[in-house]
Design a protein around this nucleic acid. Structure first.
Length: 821
DNA sequence: GAGGCAGATCTTTTT
DNA sequence: GATCTGCCTC
């Protein structure tokens, strides 16, 4: 059992004299960025270009120039990155009350202080996706919607995506041909109401409420803008519309906004991230200074050359150089294995050998894969070779039933209206309160406009409830009240509160009785682990109190240990678990590897259908995102990169035969070498046996030729902004190239955003009757008439093809003007 | 009301 | 392969 560590709360202390940080270690462009003080700044930073150095030096520089540290906010993608930033800033100028963290944490605190503006109290609960899913399920049940054909995950995903696009239940328009959208639209308002009643938010709401806070309250916005006067955003290429809105809203009066990012490393498009944000930063902030960091200090020349060649295949990008002074180093190795097990065994053996020969230590290695499910065979192989590893999928700890139960208890103490938490713990350990009783309770509570907990205290008066169940509920209410009293203690220590919960609820007894469960999990030990983590947080807070730190902007949440603990447990991320100091090989997804670096990197399962993922094959935009993912993977490597695929793979319980990823082809060049039992003797990957559908007939093509083909290939398919794909049947390579759908978010100003957020601006269409139009499925046609106005207006289209005449809601965007040349 | 079993279902990436 | 659901029995 690996131990868990919670990210520390901000360590504030502001009395130390300020050393002036030396800028000698920076190159010219780094220094230019680091010494920028006033006004917007865009830093385009390639991989390994010392971005974090620049950001930390800039923060240190700002402080040394007299900028109050409390006015600086640095937003990063993971808590890990934030911690690293904090560590390095502290190294430069000592501990500072700079607010650093993820967007979600920042938003959670903002909301904590201004919860009333969005109808919450500062004790609101943050529901993780599982809890949010459960609420959604209850909402569906209430509405009598069947979920058999629209899995809850998809609905949650649809709503999440819409929230991230700043839509509301009112402005959300189900897309044509997506039944899940329609269900989501009906479910969303009730779901939202239930969250509000429970004084709860889901992950997305943290951002959405914060954005709304800013757009709906101009005075508050101005105050916050002034308070957070210097804002730094990392990984800006992966910010989405809500995040954009928040950042924008905080930097109108004081546009000292500095963003860093790399469009070539944008890998979160599926989550609503819009490259547009970084590509059009200069339009948003015309006075922006732009600094390019193109010098790479991480990777060997061979690794960079390979990454460069690969990414050059993307059409939607700002060309960018990767400059290095490094030696060529080892060739990038592309290995074609026979089976997935061979691949895993080979890698494990190679790593074991490198370690035993003293050449490398375990933490020098990372193995990256596209999906988490791919880790299993690698784990088995590593274990059998005696190589220790850490699987960076740490959320597993917080997903354990016992951990969730205990945390739910704390949530319920903080927020008595948290129905979801109540449902989790009310009958654990069994108290004789079953489904039937809970339904009676819920119905009665609703009738009387009470939370379930308040209703429980009055259970004796609920008709239909058995005496036994009523008693149990009243008892439960008392238990809660008792523990609330414990939670209200001054100088509360979370560890102590956890102990109290465990002891008084009988949960500890229950776990002790269970002993080790069927999978060999010692559930009690896991809970103890949580207590240890809580102790660390307690100590942090105590230390801070002792230091007399009441940092200027008074981080309200931090003064409340329980709130801080809950916030932290709710918002830990996968990568936060990764511990770079531990002597283990790191196993993680390509996504999780973002921002990290390793001497040796293995990229596994690079096969068609896995990477690129089969769901992205039809969509040029998504294919490019997959390519960026590989680019990110390759550029994690400092000295060695090994990419591999297997001809036969056991995956998801079945065996599949697959061809090497087209990305492997695109990587091939003078910096790479082919190896492995399936490697063609010609030293060229592009042999017939690997490509059943050789696009060039009997032409034997070399890597360069293939590259050109690949570049042209996507023109055969078009993805539109609503996600539908257009296939040009049997399109020749020279098929007319249609422009990719424009980025989804056609807004530029905060005012525009505000309107959009409040729902007053509907998605536009710019169509008029008589116009030639295009539909992804039915092809070209004539828009013969439009009825109604606004987003709900309906257009009638007479298609040229067999589709005949059909009607469409124009606001959905399924009909677009035909751009005939 | 609780617990256990069999069958069905769906498989990306994550704050 | 894993998880969830519904159904069954005690």
């Amino acid at each position: 059992m690996s131990s868990i560590r919670l990210p520390p709360v901000c360590a504030h202390a502001s009395t130390a004299p300020l050393p002036i940080p030396s800028l000698d270690s920076l190159n010219d462009s780094q220094r230019q960025a680091a010494t920028h003080v006033e006004g917007p700044l865009l830093v385009l930073a390639g991989p390994g270009s010392g971005k974090t150095r620049v950001v930390t030096h800039r923060i240190a520089h700002l402080i040394s120039q007299g900028v109050p540290a409390g006015q600086i906010v640095a937003l990063s993608f993971t808590n890990k990155a934030a911690d690293e930033m904090r560590r390095r800033v502290t190294e430069l100028v000592g501990p500072q009350p700079v607010e650093m963290g993820t967007f979600h944490r920042f938003a959670a605190r903002l909301l904590r202080r201004h919860a009333g503006f969005v109808g919450l109290t500062s004790d609101y609960s943050i529901l993780d996706p599982d809890d949010a899913g459960a609420v959604l399920k209850r909402a569906a049940k209430k509405l009598g919607l069947s979920l058999s054909h629209t899995p809850i995950d998809r609905l949650a995903g649809t709503i999440s995506r819409a929230k991230n696009d700043l839509l509301t239940p009112e402005t959300f328009e189900p897309r044509w041909g997506r039944p899940a959208d329609e269900v989501a639209r009906r479910l969303w308002p009730l779901y939202q109401q239930m969250l509000l009643d429970a004084n709860s938010v889901d992950f997305d709401d943290l951002l959405v409420h914060s954005a709304r806070l800013l757009t709906d309250n101009p005075d508050l916005r101005a105050i916050l803008d002034a308070r957070h006067r210097w804002i730094l955003v990392d990984e800006y290429q992966d910010t989405n519309a809500v995040q954009y809105c928040i950042v924008r809203g905080l930097s109108i009066d004081h546009p000292n906004l500095a963003v860093t990012g790399d469009p070539d490393q944008a890998i979160y498009g599926w989550r609503g991230a819009s490259i547009r944000n970084i590509l059009e930063f200069e339009r948003d902030y015309p006075t922006a200074a732009v600094v390019k960091l193109e010098h790479n200090y991480r990777s060997s020349a061979n690794i960079l050359g390979t990454a460069d060649r690969l990414i050059a295949h993307n059409s939607r990008r700002k060309p960018k150089r990767l400059i290095t002074a490094a030696a060529p180093g080892e060739l990038v190795r592309i290995v074609l294995d026979s089976t997935s097990h061979d691949e895993a065994d080979r890698i494990a053996a190679e790593i074991a050998h490198a370690i035993s020969s003293g050449k490398r230590s375990p933490r020098d290695f990372a193995i990256l894969f596209r999906t988490n499910a791919l880790s299993r065979s690698l784990e088995v192989a590593l274990r059998s070779c005696g190589v220790s590893y850490q699987l960076v999928r740490g959320l597993e700890f917080f997903k354990r039933r016992e951990i969730r139960d205990v945390v739910a208890w704390l949530r319920l103490l903080k927020n008595p209206r948290d129905d979801e938490a109540l449902l989790r713990v009310v009958n654990v350990p069994p108290r004789g309160i079953g489904r039937q009783s809970l339904e009676l309770l819920a119905a009665w509570a609703e009738d009387h406009r009470l939370s379930r907990l308040d209703a429980a205290a009055r259970a004796a008066g609920i008709p239909g409830l058995s005496k036994r169940a009523a008693n149990a509920l009243v008892q439960f209410g008392r238990l809660h009240a008792e523990l609330c009293a414990a939670a209200a203690a001054p100088d509360l220590r979370i560890a102590a509160l956890l102990e109290a919960v465990l002891n008084r609820t009988g949960y500890r007894q229950m776990l002790a009785d269970d002993g080790v469960d069927e999978d060999g999990n010692d559930r009690l030990a896991n809970v103890e682990e949580l207590i240890t983590a809580a102790q660390q947080l307690d100590d942090d807070i105590a230390a801070r109190r002792q230091a007399g730190d009441t940092a200027a902007s008074g981080a309200a949440a931090d003064d409340d240990p329980l709130a801080a603990f809950l916030e932290t447990t709710a918002l830990v991320a996968d990568t936060d678990i990764w511990d770079p100091t531990v002597e283990r090989v790191a196993l993680m997804t390509f996504h999780a590897a973002k921002g990290l670096e390793f001497p040796v990197v293995y990229l596994v399962a690079m096969e068609d259908g896995i990477l690129p993922h089969e769901r992205s094959l039809d969509h040029p935009d998504q294919l490019e995102e997959e390519r960026r993912l590989v680019f990110v993977g390759i550029t994690r490597g400092m000295h060695e990169v090994h990419a591999s695929c297997a001809r036969m793979r056991d995956y998801r319980g079945t065996r599949r035969i697959s061809a090497p990823s087209l990305f492997l082809n695109e990587m091939i060049g003078s910096e790479t070498v082919l190896a492995g039992p399936e490697a063609p003797a010609s030293g060229n990957l592009a042999v017939e046996s690997f490509f059943d559908e050789d696009p060039s007939g009997d032409d034997r093509f070399d890597a360069a030729d293939f590259a050109d083909d690949a570049r042209a290939a996507p023109s055969a398919q078009i993805t539109r902004q609503d996600g539908l794909t257009l296939e040009l049947e049997d399109a020749p390579a020279a098929a007319p190239q249609r422009r990719p759908a424009r980025a989804n978010l056609a807004f530029a100003t905060a005012a525009d955003l505000a309107e959009r957020l409040s729902g007053s601006v509907k998605p536009k269409h710019n169509l008029s009757a008589g116009q030639r139009v295009w539909h992804a499925e039915y092809g070209a046609g004539l828009l013969s008439g439009i009825s109604g106005t606004g987003p709900r207006s309906v257009g009638t289209v007479i298609f040229d093809g067999p589709a005949g005449t059909r009607k469409f809601i124009l606001g959905h965007g399924s009909i677009e003007p035909a751009d005939e040349k």
